[in-house]
Amino acid sequence: MNEPIIEVADVWFFYNGIPVLQEINLTVHRGDFVALLGPNGGGKTTLLKLMLGLLKPERGAILVFGESPRESSHRIGYMPQHLHFNQSFPISVLDVVLMGKLRPGLGWSRYSQKDKIAAQQALERVEMGKFANRRVGELSGGQQQRVFIARALVDEPELLFLDEPTTSVDTKHQTDLFDILKELNETVTIIVVSHDIGIISTHVKSVACVNQQIFHHDHAEIKEEMIELAYQCCPVDIVAHGLPHRVLKIHEDEE
């Protein structure tokens, strides 16, 4: 077994007093390709944000590369959920990708020529090179997803987090995306968050299902999601009792 690079131990997270995540234990080893599945609102994105240090757990500990997530987050390539972007924001594709080269801390923030070359190369890698000077808002949803993948990759991270990478992308783009990820997975550890169970049929190596345990049974919205969960996803307790389990047959080329 490879060295563990993410260790989540007995993590609890509450939102307005309601537990969103409870007793989460998860270990991700170098070279893994993990899919975090679960219904919308199940706490997948919350878990991702905890591992990125964007949120702090109420209880428990998270170590990424053996450090607190805040210390190590700049070593993670991160692609956030697509839906919150301001489409009228005046920014070029290249400038979006260059954000992936921002350095921690405060200082005279300037990109070097090397950064710009790296950004252009990251765009070429996702076949978006010729769009470098276009405004991001003018691109299609699928093209924008690729730009955000390029931004996540530009600093050559050892660890890659993708939050719902298949929304607003057509099937052809999805296949391309997973081919890119498979190639990357030879050197990079990947965690993909998705509410789409179809993601398992790709090159994912292990699956973890995330859903908070629900204490407020009278909450109508959450109840509906519980039903959805029963049909779409494996039981709630899978993350709670340890490692993500393997649901796929092992591919021959991995042996």
């Binding site: 944000k49 990125l52 964007l54 987050s73 956030p80 920014i91 954000m99």
Partner: peptide
Amino acid sequence: CYYNDFLALSYDEDFAQVRGVR
């Protein structure tokens, strides 16, 4: 001085924070 940091903050605050921007 902080143009690129402000740009990232305005466009995608979470990403800026992940990159270690204050």
